[in-house]
Amino acid sequence: MTDLLLEATTSHMETVYCMPQALSAQPTHYCPGCTHGVAHRLLAEALDELNMRERAILVAPVGCAVFAYQYFEIDGCEAPHGRAPAMATGLKRVQPDRIVITYQGDGDLASIGAGEILHAAARGEPITVIFINNAIYGMTGGQMAPTSLSGQRTTSSPFGRVGEPLRMSELLAVLPQTAYIVRRSLHNPAHIRKAKKAILTALKAQEAGLGFSMVELLSSCPTNWGLSPAEALEWIEKHMLPVFPVGDYKVAEAVKEL
């Protein structure tokens, strides 16, 4: 009886929202209110829409997203801390027709892996980097990150951070062989929609062989910021956006034509 009812109600309905094929049907370990889940979904949707799921390879980082290779229904591996761009280089160079993506946090990409990301970008390695910037080390329990804000209190900067955060998008955008480097934010639906569009463009740039692409996503860490999920989204807007302005830092001419 129930099945019949369902059939009756769904027969004339259109699917407008469903689980992306590129996302694994399993619960994640992320904290409530963390925006990793949003970033995962955006990437998975983009892979589906571009029909890339069956030729994509994900390189997961060390950090909160260490299990990312399990959360996507695509081939995946896990790099040592910070080394994802080097691993991605190896994967991409031997199979240039595949779509190789690294997913990295701020400690992974901007601190221990600063050398690897800089040189992958400088070489114009045609990979796509999803860079999650939440201004803190999440997995180890809230220590200072290279992107922590000036004065930000963390478990390893209890009196407030001395110094200024590294702005990776600005830094990498000056390298001539980068194709597409943008910063977006995940703190509200309007920004999330723009983030999705940026991920689509980055993947298209890779497919077209135009060079290195990176989408930096400002993300929340309610657990280690000591805020509720809603407050954490406000914190992104109030405190992170002024320091890390969203915007297009590098869009190569060929990318504009995509």
Binding site: M87, G90, G115, L118, H119
Partner: peptide, 25 residues
């Protein structure tokens, strides 16, 4: 494929990536 890496740290991780892709590296 030949690539001069930026460091030995990067070189071995590039090998790691190529090995994941199943080629002799």
């Amino acid at each position: 494929v030949f690539l001069q890496a930026e460091s030995e740290v990067a070189a071995i991780n590039m090998v790691y990536g190529a090995a994941c892709a199943g080629v002799r590296t």
